[in-house]
Every structure is written in C-alpha cells, then in structure tokens.
Design a protein around this nucleic acid. Structure first.
Lengths: 203, 203
DNA sequence: GATTAATGTGAAAGAGAATTCACATCTGGA
DNA sequence: TCCAGATGTGAATTCTCTTTCACATTAATC
C-alpha cells in the first residue's frame, strides 16, 4: 500500500505543516521522524527523500516560522502609516499567528535552541533581533513624525512591546487556551500607548 | 570504587543541584539520569535509591524552583512597605535568581511542561498564577495606599511586570549572556513606574 | 510503450535512555 | 563487634528514535 507520490517541494511543505501540527498537539519530544511520517501516512524512511536528516527538517520549520513572522511586519507596514496603529496591528497579528499555530512557542523554547547547538541558536537569535529591529524602526518613525515621545529609547520600547505579548502567550499556553488573551490586550494596550505617546488615546 | 555514601536528604538536594547545573550548561534533552549520575560520580541506578523515577526527580526540581521564587516575594515584603519599592526589589531579585541559576528558563519552557495535559503542567501553571497573584497583591496594596493609580487593573499590572522581565531573559539567554539586562531594566523600569503611578519618579 | 529518475517501503543496524535486579558495601546502633 | 538496613554497582532488559540500504513502485519523458 504505497502512499501517493508527490513532488519534493510539496512534500517538504507537508512535512513542515505536519510537524507544526504535531507540535501544537504535543511536545517537541514527540516531534519525531516516526510521528511525522505516521501523520502523513508515510514510512519514516520516506522523509529522508526530502530532507537530509532531522536537523534539516528542523531548519525548515524554523525558516517557516521566520517567514510568517516577517510577513506580519510587511502587512502592517502597508496597512497604515501611523506608528501606533502599526504596532497595534502587529500585536493582533502576532497573537493571531500564535493562536493559529500554537506549536510555535514550543519550538521557540525547545531544546533545539536552548542547548549549546550554537549555529541554530544563533540563527534564531538573529530572527528575534531582526524582528525586534523592525518594531524598533516603527517606533523610530513614530518619533520622527511626532506621534511617539522622543525621550523613549526605541529599542526598549520595542522590547516592551513583546512584554505585552509574552506573558499572555505563556499564560494562554499553560492554561491550555483558557486564558483570556483579548482581555489582557484590552487592559494593557492602553497603558502601553499612554507610555509611548505621553497621553491617553481614545480609539 | 564505591562513591561516598550520604543520606537520602542530602543526596536529593545534590541531585536537584546537579540537574540545575547541567541544565544551565546544556539543554533538557541532555538532562538524563545518566548525565546527572555521572556528574555526581554515581552509577545511574544509584539515583533510584533517592527518587522513584525520573518523574519524581523532575518534580523535586520544580519544587525547588517554586521555593526560590516565593522566597523572593517574602524577602521583598519584609524589605519595604512601599509597593513600587517592593516591585523593584522583586524585579532585581528575580533577574538575579535567573542569572544565578540560568537553567531555570530552560526547565520552565521544557517539554516536561509544554506537551501533555499532564499533572505537572497544571502544577507549574498554579505556581505561575500564584506568583502573579502575589505581585497583584503588592499592586493592590499600593493602590489602597495611594501610591499606585486606582484605575489600573492590578492583574494586568502584574502581568506587565513580567513583561519587563521576560523579553530580557529571553534575549539574555539567546545571546548566551551578552545581552545587557541592566541596561534594559534601566530603560524600561521608569516607563513602567510612570505607568503605575501616573508621574515621573526620581530615584 | 519503454526507460529512467524520483519517490516510497520494510527491515535492520546502531545509539542512547529509563528502569530493574541480584549482589556488594557501607554505616549506625545494640 | 556484629547485624540490619540503607546505599551503591554493573549487567541486563526494554524502549524509542534516527538513519541506511536494497528493493519496489510510480511518473514523466522520449
């Protein structure tokens, strides 16, 4: 009972998708070649036709995440010119992304990165700092247009932006989805905006 | 060449210590019975004299972390009466703790918690929410004494408190210790205080 | 329709881990 | 001193996972 044959490109995407799906259901520890193959209805050995080894698969997964993250930046840049609006849009999109593919945080905080395996770790660090730099740019633009206080360190403001997201995602994840992310955003976003602009902003 | 014999109580502590040490050097994936035993100069089987199984060891590690976290709350409560001072003290102590035992985040975000719908996950969730509740209490006290704005949701303020810490720890970890945590705190703490109190506070 | 390269399969090798167990050795108390 | 129980050991068992390989099947191209 051979499984349907498909081109490598499609298979690669399917493997990444299956991996993310498995991650959201369980832990990275169970993200095994065997599990991915079973999910796809293939034999484990089949995956080696599309990736050199497990490491290459993990790299593809990370690359996928990177793409998704930066796509949000692009979108938000096009949607609005106002810095605060852009940040708000990014917040919503970021949370939406994690909500949809909630295997991401698990991958993000996984052994694959936390260990000494430096190359991979450095790569992910570059992704994070790159993402932060984009947020920082948005803040900086807001400052030059006068919508954001100029006495704020833009890099610090960017990190604080993720200070809104991170606790929420952590709690959401640990509570298995029952934590009220929207409520958190509703309560904290105005505080953040006030810190950014120096005044209360009515939306 | 039998290793020196010691009482179970001491051995248990040593096992937890060795585990944390290993975690800070590497990832949870390498936190194996074998590795812990080797670090202690024991045979793997010896550890089973002190813990029923690997799971029991992990529980002991989590318990250790819990103790350390809540000890900081106690200390800070005794050090000062002012809510903002208490929060600042907790921030410093929390960061100090992670700096000293930087295996903690790795354990915190490990497979042991992120995967299953396990008892362990629920336990850790309780620890986190308990810790947050303590911070929330401090905020609430500050509100009733008039040092913190009353229109702030104390729970949200508590989560934002960790919004200062979490990005810093993540970056510090990913950068392998080169990220400037103190600089981050210096840049973000005044912003947080201003949001809490409604005014600039000179320290 | 035949050829060929790509894709899939099952078995098996090899590695590493948790756990158990019979046996050895140490320590503290009678 | 000697015994009993606590602690440690090494070997064996049982997993699970990654990876390789010879062989099978499919799809595309001529």
């Amino acid at each position: 009972m051979a499984a349907e044959k498909l081109s490598t490109d499609i298979r690669r995407e399917q493997i990444v998708a299956a991996a993310l799906q498995l991650m959201s259901e369980s832990s990275i520890r169970r993200l095994t070649i065997t599990a991915i193959a079973r999910r796809m209805g293939l034999a484990p050995s089949a995956l080696y036709r599309h990736f050199r080894n497990r490491d290459a698969m993990m790299s593809a997964i990370f690359e996928h995440i990177r793409t998704r993250l930066f796509r949000n930046i692009e979108t938000v840049r096009q949607e609005s010119n106002d810095a605060v609006d852009r940040l708000r849009g990014l917040l919503d999109r970021h949370i939406g992304l994690i909500r949809k593919e909630h295997g991401i945080p698990g991958i993000f905080f996984s052994d694959e990165l936390w260990g000494r395996q430096s190359e991979r770790r450095r790569k992910m660090f570059r992704i994070v700092t790159g993402y932060l730099a984009e947020v920082e740019d948005i803040v900086r633009e807001g400052q030059s247009r006068g919508t954001i206080r100029k006495d704020l360190d833009p890099a610090a403001a960017a990190r604080l932006f993720f200070g809104i997201v991170q606790p929420a995602i952590l709690l959401w994840h640990m509570s298995e989805g029952s934590f009220d992310i929207d409520g958190h955003v509703a309560a904290t976003w105005p505080v953040y905006v006030e810190a950014l602009t120096g005044e209360v902003r009515a939306d």
